[in-house]
Each structure stands twice: as structure tokens, then as C-alpha cells.
Design a protein around this nucleic acid. Sequence first.
DNA 1: GGATAACCGAGACGGTACGTCCGGTCTTACC
DNA 2: GGTAAGACCGGACGTACCGTCTCGGTTATCC
Lengths: 195, 195, 195, 195
Amino acid sequence: MPPNASRRSERSRRAILDSALDLVGEVGYARTSIEGIAARAGVGKQTIYRWWPSKGAVLLDALLALSEGEEGEVEDLPDTGDLEADLKLVMRATVAELTDPRYDAPMRALATEILHDPALRAQWSERLDGPLRRLKEERLRSAQAAGELPGELDIALAIDLIWGPVFHRWLQSEAPLTAEFADQVVASAMHGLRG
Amino acid sequence: MPPNASRRSERSRRAILDSALDLVGEVGYARTSIEGIAARAGVGKQTIYRWWPSKGAVLLDALLALSEGEEGEVEDLPDTGDLEADLKLVMRATVAELTDPRYDAPMRALATEILHDPALRAQWSERLDGPLRRLKEERLRSAQAAGELPGELDIALAIDLIWGPVFHRWLQSEAPLTAEFADQVVASAMHGLRG
Amino acid sequence: MPPNASRRSERSRRAILDSALDLVGEVGYARTSIEGIAARAGVGKQTIYRWWPSKGAVLLDALLALSEGEEGEVEDLPDTGDLEADLKLVMRATVAELTDPRYDAPMRALATEILHDPALRAQWSERLDGPLRRLKEERLRSAQAAGELPGELDIALAIDLIWGPVFHRWLQSEAPLTAEFADQVVASAMHGLRG
Amino acid sequence: MPPNASRRSERSRRAILDSALDLVGEVGYARTSIEGIAARAGVGKQTIYRWWPSKGAVLLDALLALSEGEEGEVEDLPDTGDLEADLKLVMRATVAELTDPRYDAPMRALATEILHDPALRAQWSERLDGPLRRLKEERLRSAQAAGELPGELDIALAIDLIWGPVFHRWLQSEAPLTAEFADQVVASAMHGLRG
DNA sequence: GGATAACCGAGACGGTACGTCCGGTCTTACC
DNA sequence: GGTAAGACCGGACGTACCGTCTCGGTTATCC
């Protein structure tokens, strides 16, 4: 899809992603402009338009680059045999990330941008949400196999029941998003699903 | 707060709210501009700026006007003594509204605008979300009093557990938002909370 | 043709014309941009685009405003009864203007822009060249009536013969444009035409 | 001045000159870009920048190549002993060339470009205008020697008097440039000069 | 019932950013 | 080492809207 990726300047790519994240953190997503990103990155606007279709796409890449830089890149959800304990661990990590100031602003921005830009949503699904969702499905199926969850349980429903309250509180509610809340959500959801 | 509401032209007010809703429906929120609303409403831009602080505020009013026009204006959540049945009823209505094409686009738009505009969020909380939330709390407390829910239950947590999955699926997931899903979420959440 | 001339800001109009002339004088026509004019004039770009169709049109107006400011606004060519003497006077004035540094750069620029922009050429003809040409025709016809020129002489040809060499040297030749040259051209052309 | 002319691709050179002429003819000089020429010629931009300093320089070469292709490459102005007749012949040929659609657009373009680009002007003088001017001077001096023109006549002045009206009408006037006009200009100018 | 003040439509204004085009330079791979 | 290809930084284009600011015209109170 990109013009000719082989000749692409890695230097400019990094500068653009860094500048985008910095600007979103400093002035917010709405006041972050492509022009501003280009200027701060010391890059021509065309270099951004050549490789990304929109401001949101730049931010998505920036966010992916950021999480790839982390050591704890999740390969698999923990599977100790105790689903509830494992999910609490995972959910606390999720809450920690969602409240990390480095991630919070750009991720909120992306989450809303996705609602208006189908192309961006497709990218997000393919590169961020999809892989994560597959890990969740895997872990839940493993729990089904182990008898921790009913065999006939609808996995997609289960995922929304477990993670939905957390994401809802993150984006839509004014109540605080804490580790305790994560634990309570997991406990309650697990209890509800086990029936 | 408004200059002098008594002299306000009701005709212009209606035309603005209608045009705003129409435009959001036709071209999407992002491509709806104040200038566009003014032009379609046959109104000077200043008339919009005089009475509303932002595009989102216009839309919030438009949405409120829309739901006030409905007959089924909710005064109280049903309370038949069977919490689960009552909630299923309520949740099905919510899902119906969220998937109604007249509401869907503007409500999604508003939901995201709120994330970036604190003043708008305050209005939203005060005039839409707050009243609803109070009804939910009331109904849940009534259930506590009736022994259907544990007395020590954190009501705010309960609300997020029950409604979170639905709103999460509405805004963030690609899975369909159906009446069945509403029922399942309520059933599962209730079972989890009753423990 | 303009949107609504009555509400036009005279202040901005003057600032734009002045800035345009200044910039053409300082950096040349090619490096003068609409953006640059707007910036120097302290004016939004749209204010230029609202009232002028092109950079050349701004310059034409600026030039017209400049010459309107002069006291010696020509109303009629002198007519003392001695055509050759009168024309020498006029031609020396023309040469003086063409070599005046305030006029030279913008007028050269305009003269070339006209070759590529038919709309601009029409304006130029109507507001600058045409009126002047009519004065010339008038004076020559008066000379015909007085018997100083043959009655059957083609006036358009005569004008090109008299003024052509001067404008040619101004724009195309590297030889200097002097008052003596003006005199010689008039003398020689008159002699050629009288035959 | 060019890097190493020996390795130069004749194929590319021709393609560039042809494309330049074609584009100027089709979309005009202003909308002809170096990128456009390169693209149409199937050539890298660098290949143009390596061998020519500017768009105008390409066009000058293209024009020279075009006239070299003509059979009637002027080596000398005709000298039959009748200056007026000779000049009429020459002037009619000039008019024919200036109104030839193949030459007209690019030559107008070049004539104006020269006003803004001193380097190009130097090239133009050296390779097109200068040689022609020398031929004209030669022919006029020959006429002086033959007694057809006064011995003390300023040759440069004479050239401007004879050719000025034609070039002026070509570039600046809206009146048509015809063979009759050429004849009349020569006749009148000759009469004026002979005095 | 005439003055007057607020609202209204219209739209010009100084700005910011858009997404595109092209200038001139540099880099890569090929021949 | 010249070439086709094209990425790069940068500057300007002409457009869309922003939010503010007059303009006249029209109500709708209040003296």
C-alpha cells in the first residue's frame, strides 16, 4: 500500500511518531495538527501524508511503537489453572496502562477517533484489538476445557462482561479506575459466568 | 447565563437544532460545522454562538429536544419486585435507542466529544447522564431493600457491571448490539451480583 | 462582482496594496506570494482571495492606486499645435515613469503576467492601457485635423510606430532607455509618418 | 559547465526537449513544471537538473533545437541592394514565425521569463538574440555604405525603430500581427530613417 | 406611540490548518 | 558515472471553518 517502503527514512518515521505522542500529551489530540507534528519532527508535511492517511493513523502507529518498546510485551495471558486469579492480574495490568499518563491521552484520542474513521478502526482491530482479543478467547477456552467455565458459554459475551465494565468506566464514567475496581469486576463477572 | 432569553427566537432555535441533527445524520459529526448548521438553518453564525458555547452543546440540546418529543419519557425505572425482569425491560429499551439510526450517530458523536470537552461533559452529566444514573441507583437500592441484592453492595460498581458491557459493545466492539445480548448481560450480571 | 463591497475594510485594502508593492520592490514579483502579502499586511489570506482573483490583479490595483496618488494624473495629452513637440514631452514623461524605480519592477511584472492571464489582460486593457490609448488616438486625430498628419493614416499603426520602439527597449532590449532616445524615436517616427 | 557531456544520454535529452515544448503548447508555460516534463519524458528529475539550471533554460534549448530543425536557418539577411525590400522580406518571415502556433507560446514564455532571470537572459542574448542582432547591424551598415541610410545614423536606434513596433505588437498589443503590418512598419520606419 | 435596546440575518475579518503541488536536493539500484 | 525512480524538507497554493466583529433591519418593551 505505501509507495515504496524500502527507501523510507527510518529517522523521519521515528521523529514523526515521537512528535505525535509528545504533542498529544502536551496540548491534547484536538489541538495536535499534522502541520504541528511535521514542524516539531523537522519533516515536510508530505512525508506524513505519504505514509499515513490521517492523524489518527499516525497516533495508532505511535502507540504500537510505544508498546513494542516495553519489555513486558504480552505474548500470552497467564494460565496458572486459576482463571480468576489470572484475570485479576491481567486486569490490574490493564488498569495500570489505562491510567499511565503516557498512554492515557493518546489512547482516549484513538478510541474516539475510531468511532468516526472506519479505515482507522480496521487498522486498530487488526493490529491492536484483534490480537488482544484472541489472547483473551484462548485463555477463556482453556478455562472451559479445564471445567472452570461452562462449555456452552458464549466467549464473545464473556469477554464483554469481563472487560466491558472496565473500559466503560475508563471512557465514560467519572468514577475512578482503580486496581480494587478491577478485582471486583473480575470477581463479580466470574461469579456471574460460572453459573 | 444566556444574554436575554426572553427575546430569543424560538423559530431560529428549532431550525438550528433540526439542522444540526440532520447534518450529523447526513455527513457525520466531523464534517458538520457551525457554519454549515447556520447556513442550513438560515441563521447568522452569531445566533449560534450567542446561545451555545460549542458544536457539541448544540448537539446535546438537539438530542434532548429529540427525546423530549418522545412519548415514553422515562420518569422512573419499572419496579415490579422482580429486578432482573425489570432490568431486562430497561436494557432492551436502551439497546433499541442506541441502535435507532436517529439517535445512533449524534449520540456516538456526543459520547466522544465529551471526552475532550469538560464543559460539555458537565452539561451532559447534569442533564442526561446524571438523572438517568439516579434512577438506576434508586432502582438498585429498592432491590437492596427488598433483599434481592446484598445490602453491602457498592451501587456504583453494580451500575458499571450491568450497563458497562452494553455501552462497551455499543462504542468499542464490532459485535452486534441486540436484545438477546441485553438479556444475557443482565442475567449474567445479576447472577454475579447476587452472590 | 465582489461579494459585498459596502462592508469592505478600506484599512485592509490599503495595507494589501501597499504590502504588495513593497514586496515586489524588495524581493521581486516571482518571490512575492499571496501568503507573504497577507502576512505583511496583517491580513488573512481569505481577505485577499475574497477581493482579487490573483496576485497580478492585486498588483494592477496597487499600481493604479499608486498613479492615482500622483498629482500629475494625465487627463489629456498636451495639444499646442506642434505634434512632435507635444509627443516628445509625453514620451519623456513615459520614459521617466518606466525608469522610476517605484514603477519599474511592478510594471514589468504586470506586463509579463498579462501575457499568461487573459482575465488580467482584460482588466489591464480596460483600466490602464485602454484609457491611455484613447488619449493617444485623440491627439493623433487632432493632428490629422490640423493637417500635421495625412488624413488616411492608420491610427493604430501610428501608435505602434511611435510607442513601440520605446516599450520594446524597455522590456526586451538591454540598451538604456533615456530621454534622448525618446526624442529620437519621436522625431524619426514623425518623419516617417508625415510622408 | 555540464558534468560530463560525453556520457550524456541523447535519448533523454531529446525526450526532455520534446516534452517541454509539448507541455508548454498544451497547458501553457505557467502550468508546465519540471516534474511534469520529467514524468512525460520518462526521465528522472535529476537528469533535468543535471543539465539545465531552470525551466526556462530547457525551453530555450527546446526552441533552438526546433529552429535548427528548420531548413531555412538564417545565415545572413538578404542583401539585394534594396534595403526596404530586403527588410520587408525579413519582417514578413519574422511575423510568420511569431504567429506560428509551434513557436508562439514557447517564445512568449521565454520572452517573459527573460525579464526575471538574468542567467537565462544571458543565454538568450548569446545564443538567440545576439546573433540575430549582429545580422541586422551588418545589413544596416551595408546599407549605410551603399548610401541608403545616413552615415551618422545610430544603428541600435535604427534597429529598435524597425523591429520595435513589431515586437511590441506581438507581446503587448491586442491588434493583429500581419504581413501587411510588417510591410507598413518597414516602409514607415525606412522613410523616417532616411531623412 | 415613539424611543431604544436586544436579537436577528448576513457576512467581512484575522487566523489556523487542511491536503496538494512543486521546487531543488539526496539516495538507491541498475546498467 | 549517468540514469530512472522517487523520498526528502520546505514553501506556497487555494479552501474550509474558527470565533469575533460590524452592519442594517426587525421586534418587543418600557417610558
